[in-house]
């Protein structure tokens, strides 16, 4: 049986809507950490929001959540992966929205803002999965600048931002900036020595 990390839920009780949480995970526990973050936000705090799916396709993520019994039908997914795969965007799910490429950083932000404007829920989150996926395509300085904008945009709108990253694969400039911008840290990743 799939077990969620309860300590993450405990940590999340400390955060406010205008917080930005950096969630560090490792290669092996990425999904467990993601699910352990999502579930309490949805179930304990009755939040909804946007999941930016940059590591795996949105469909794959939804199926993974459904396999462990988590209903994500009211979460809007912004899929950055599938447009790069021929036939990848053949989906009838209404909660999947495609962005052409992870390089279109501003589009991702605007798409998330648009989806948040259409939601009826009062409390929302935006989960960015993950910094590492964006780092594959984007220059370090641009990514650092983007995360700065991203975090501040949602903080201003009282939308909880959750930034997932695998620290040992994150460019140092980006990582140090993340440390600076984020208000909270949930660390389930490996120890990083640079």
């Amino acid at each position: 049986m799939f077990e969620l990390d309860q300590r993450i839920a405990e940590q999340l009780t400390e955060v406010a809507l205008n917080s930005s949480v950096q969630v560090r995970c490792g290669n092996s526990n990425a999904f467990m950490v993601t699910a352990s973050t999502m579930v309490p936000l949805m179930q304990m705090f009755e939040m909804g929001g946007v999941y930016i799916s940059g590591s795996r396709s949105a469909m794959e993520m939804i199926e993974a959540f459904e396999t462990i019994g988590i209903d994500v039908s009211n979460i809007q997914f912004v899929d950055l992966v599938s447009s790069g795969v021929l036939g990848g965007t053949d989906s009838t799910r209404k909660n999947i929205h495609f962005v052409d490429s992870p390089i279109m950083l501003e589009s991702i932000l605007l798409r998330a803002l648009y989806l948040l404007r259409t939601t009826t829920l009062e409390r929302n989150f935006v989960i960015l999965d993950s910094v590492n996926a964006l780092a594959i395509y984007n220059d370090d300085r641009m990514l650092a600048e983007y995360l700065h904008t991203f975090i501040n945009t949602f903080r201003q709108r009282e939308v909880l931002s959750v930034i997932l990253n695998v620290p040992d694969q994150t460019p140092p400039l980006v990582l140090s900036n993340l440390d600076l911008y984020c208000t909270d840290l949930i660390d389930r990743g490996q120890v990083v020595i640079h």
Partner: peptide
């Protein structure tokens, strides 16, 4: 800018991009 069903949406363009 992004043309969304609820209208045009803008955000400052990344300086490095």
């Amino acid at each position: 800018i992004e043309l969304t069903p609820i209208g045009v949406m803008l955000t400052p363009m990344l300086k490095w991009g």
